[in-house]
Design a protein around this nucleic acid. Structure first.
Lengths: 233, 233
DNA sequence: TCAAACCATATTTTCGAAAATACTAGCGCT
DNA sequence: AGCGCTAGTATTTTCGAAAATATGGTTTGA
């Protein structure tokens, strides 16, 4: 028979460990698992219905991505958030995204252009449906991520793309904070459209400038309106 | 009793898994474990004297660093090497190192300067002892790594420092190839001295230029003298 | 009173067997 | 002969118990 694993539902990935890593990644970036929270195996075992070993592997993955931190012999905890981490992360993301967008604009072919346009179109449709507060809609988040991915997709650097993705995930928690605490919604749609136009217009300098500001904006919002959330640093 | 774990020798790290990861990382970068080689658990169990689970955790770590690749349900293999990977890696390393050196020069205090000078001094002593072929001397490799780390140490970006370290490890295999196949030794000592001088002289532009060329040199060597080692791509 | 040593408990880490899955070779069929 | 299917084997993945290690509270001695 070619029945593939009915016993256990695996939403993502082929192995249970990668499935659990995926679920936990989600809970961390949405702050359902709180920053700094210690992750005890007994509790996790109950929550995810997997054994020590499997959970350990999932946690090791997330630790490599910087979403949890592992202290040897003292278990795992959700990676803390802090202003200094946000600032560090932001600068790293700008460095990398700017380079990748420039290269993508240089290398991108017709298919790349089409992918950029179609992904921003999809984003627009979702934004049109839910007039406000689309920022914590999972569907919007996915489309948003895919739009940004499409911009850099033609860069030709698997290494930096992998790093970029992991930094993007790490930034998700701060984006959520920003969305919750800023006084009024940002004109993200406008920023995205401008980015798209610069990209398909092959105006690399402008696209780099825009992406840097786009990333920096969220950070500035958090610093301005939510810095009291962080203890110190 | 406060006897701490005599049963098993742990050279590095507190847990067995991190110790094994450390040992395997070494074997991968020195190519004792060959690029592309499949890693079967039974064989590893024999070689390292640890159980499935522990090995699995170690491998998961190395996979995150890009030294091994995990194919779900089909085990692990040592990450292959290729020209395209080398070129990708090189470009990523230059992007990051250039940025970090610039920031380090900007932020570095007296202690940083002293650390740079003392680490290049140590490197010089080792090079003086063994007149030739110091390139595969582990002691030299350590001092070499520490010199390069000292240059960027004051950058203030934990995130990028972590990424930098992982890319540096990945590049080690290509450095070994370069050292073995180039017709005559490069004047690395001179390059390092020039870098040090630019750094402590706070000449950021020159330091960035030098580090970019320094990283690119090894890559050019590999491409020129050893590209037949790689199958295709 | 304070600090250091010690025990009891909580928690993580490691193990090897058992289950699940992929691979291979041999068979039958067109 | 070539192709798909099946059964048997190799390999990976998962499990829960057992060992190792940390933690917190209590007692003891100065």
């Amino acid at each position: 028979m070619n029945v593939t694993a009915f016993k256990r539902r695996k939403e993502f990935g082929k192995t249970l460990a990668s499935d659990i890593a995926h679920r936990m990644r989600n809970e961390v970036v949405t702050c359902r698992l709180k920053p700094g929270e210690v992750l005890k195996f007994d509790a996790l075992r109950l929550a995810y219905g997997a054994s020590f070993t499997t959970l350990r592997e999932a946690l090791t993955c997330l630790a490599a991505e910087g979403l949890v931190v592992a202290e040897e012999q003292r278990g795992f905890k959700v990676a803390p958030i802090s202003l200094s981490d946000l600032i560090d992360l932001t600068r790293a993301r700008i460095l990398i995204d700017v380079d990748l967008i420039r290269r993508s604009i240089e290398n991108g072919d017709d298919d790349w252009e089409i992918a950029v346009i179609s992904s921003i179109h999809r984003l627009g449709i979702i934004e049109g449906r839910a007039v406000e507060d689309y920022a914590d809609n999972p569907e919007w988040k996915l489309a948003h991520r895919e739009f940004h991915e499409s911009l850099v997709a033609a860069c030709g650097s698997p290494t930096l793309l992998g790093i970029r993705q992991s930094l993007f995930e790490r930034a998700e928690r701060y984006r959520n904070i920003s969305a919750r605490f800023r006084p009024r919604p940002r004109d993200k749609a406008g920023e995205h459209r401008a980015l798209m136009k610069a990209a398909v217009g092959r105006d690399a300098d402008r696209a780099c400038e825009l992406i840097a500001r786009h990333i920096q904006n969220t950070t500035d919002n958090v610093i301005k309106y939510a810095s009291e959330l962080f203890s110190q640093n």
